[in-house]
């Protein structure tokens, strides 16, 4: 059982929300991973849907965070707060 692969677990807590990463676990295959996730991560009514992905299929950004994400920092016009809203516009 030491050679069971690692799985990443994503759980949707209710309809309309997206799946969120909650952690990882070991399992021999996808079905066991889902059942293990039910037992490990859904003991207190946390979810209505489970996704599992074998960890080796996850790809993550490895770049230096500052250089990689910095160009977004000075583009203040990408934020809605940059724009002045006329008073006549309602429901914003």
């Amino acid at each position: 059982m030491k050679d069971w692969p690692l799985w990443e677990v994503f759980i949707r807590s209710k309809q309309g929300l997206s799946h969120k990463h909650v952690g990882s676990l070991h399992a021999a295959d996808a079905q066991m991973a889902i059942e293990n996730a039910r037992d490990v991560y859904c003991r207190r009514n946390e979810g209505i849907s489970i996704w599992v992905v074998e960890s080796k299929y996850m790809h993550a950004s490895t770049e230096d965070a500052e250089a990689f994400f910095d160009p977004a920092n000075d583009k203040i016009y990408r934020h809605p707060t940059f724009y002045d809203l006329p008073d006549e516009v309602k429901h914003m």
Binding site: L25, A27, D39
Partner: peptide
């Protein structure tokens, strides 16, 4: 349990 996941499954 043989692994943590099954330990929890059985105690559940």
């Amino acid at each position: 349990g043989p692994v943590l996941e099954q330990d929890i499954a059985l105690t559940n």
